[in-house]
Amino acid sequence: MEKISAGKRLYEQVVERVRGMIEQGIYKKGDLLPSEKELMEMMGVSRITVREAMRLLSEAGVIHTIKGKGSFVLMDPKELLDHPDEKKTYPKNFLESTEARLLLEPAAARYVAIHGKEETRKAIGEYLNPAGDDLQSFHEAIIRATGNQVLIRFFQFLLNMEEVPPVISLVPPFRQKSVASKLQHQHEKIYEAIRDGDGEFAYFYMLEHLNFVKAIYQEFFDMFYQ
């Protein structure tokens, strides 16, 4: 049994090891990965750790797990290894944009909640998207509701920094079901505070939401962009 090293969280290390085996061509597209028990023995970790790693790999589109059959590889090494420049610039741009948004959006949400007209505040609810496939429109609606054209143009610039390069095959967190449902719930709390004219809760919920986005993407980049 080969023990994995200390440092990163155990499930992150399992993700890294499985990703490494795919990148090295040990397991190719369409291949069946070792079973949970085999991975547990190979890496010296618990079943819970293996399952969390498999969940993350599955949500990122690297593998597909079929109950009763196992986990199959969906990507070839080329898809994981190609385009190193984009894999460096995309995380940097995304995280820097999110840091700027942390300074900007909570204050904008509070401003709209306090100073926005009632019909304008309520209209933001039209951009809540249960399908989870267009999460940015909600944020754009809040910025537009400030009526500040400079702010609106600057915000669009920040969103452009966060666009996923088309050459990268991985599924980004906002398109992953478990993450998208949490983002949607956070949007609902932000909207309710704005609709009700509660500036402080609008500020707090937006701050909480963007910190969550930053943390979940940082973890994603650490596991798949190194």
Rank of each mutant, 00 (worst) to 15 (best):
146 T>E: 07
124 I>T: 13
121 R>A: 01
127 Y>C: 06
111 Y>T: 04
134 D>C: 04
136 Q>S: 13
104 L>G: 02
100 A>K: 14
117 K>S: 08
109 A>D: 03
130 P>I: 02
112 V>H: 06
121 R>L: 09
148 N>S: 10
101 R>H: 02
100 A>F: 08
120 T>M: 12
106 P>R: 02
115 H>D: 09
136 Q>C: 05
122 K>E: 13
143 I>H: 00
99 E>R: 12
111 Y>Q: 04
123 A>P: 03
108 A>P: 05
114 I>G: 04
138 F>N: 04
115 H>P: 00
116 G>T: 12
129 N>W: 03
150 V>H: 09
141 A>C: 02
99 E>Q: 04
150 V>D: 11
115 H>L: 13
112 V>F: 06
147 G>I: 11
132 G>I: 03
147 G>C: 14
122 K>L: 13
139 H>R: 13
110 R>W: 08
146 T>P: 09
143 I>D: 03
125 G>V: 12
101 R>I: 14
145 A>I: 05
97 S>K: 02
109 A>E: 03
140 E>I: 15
135 L>M: 11
102 L>K: 09
144 R>P: 07
98 T>C: 06
99 E>Y: 00
139 H>A: 02
143 I>R: 09
117 K>M: 11
118 E>S: 14
136 Q>Y: 12
147 G>Y: 13
129 N>M: 04
128 L>E: 07
146 T>M: 10
122 K>Y: 08
106 P>M: 05
139 H>V: 00
147 G>A: 12
104 L>R: 03
94 F>G: 01
117 K>A: 15
149 Q>N: 14
121 R>M: 09
104 L>T: 01
139 H>M: 09
97 S>C: 03
122 K>N: 10
102 L>D: 01
137 S>I: 02
133 D>Y: 01
128 L>Q: 05
125 G>A: 12
117 K>R: 15
148 N>F: 10
98 T>F: 00
143 I>E: 03
135 L>T: 10
124 I>A: 15
113 A>L: 09
104 L>Y: 00
117 K>D: 15
147 G>K: 11
131 A>N: 08
110 R>T: 05
99 E>G: 08
95 L>D: 00
109 A>K: 06
146 T>I: 12
108 A>R: 00
145 A>G: 10
105 E>K: 05
145 A>P: 09
115 H>Q: 15
110 R>E: 14
93 N>Y: 07
129 N>R: 03
119 E>M: 13
126 E>Q: 13
150 V>K: 12
110 R>K: 15
134 D>P: 02
102 L>M: 11
95 L>G: 05
113 A>G: 05
127 Y>W: 08
132 G>T: 06
123 A>F: 13
143 I>V: 15
118 E>D: 14
136 Q>D: 15
139 H>W: 00
116 G>N: 11
93 N>A: 06
132 G>Q: 03
145 A>V: 07
109 A>P: 06
112 V>Q: 02
104 L>K: 03
118 E>L: 15
128 L>I: 14
128 L>W: 05
116 G>S: 10
136 Q>G: 10
104 L>V: 02
99 E>S: 01
99 E>L: 11
150 V>Q: 12
95 L>Y: 07
94 F>A: 08
122 K>W: 04
120 T>D: 13
135 L>H: 10
101 R>Y: 02
145 A>H: 10
96 E>S: 00
134 D>W: 05
100 A>V: 00
93 N>F: 02
119 E>W: 15
120 T>K: 14
111 Y>L: 11
108 A>M: 11
114 I>N: 12
95 L>S: 01
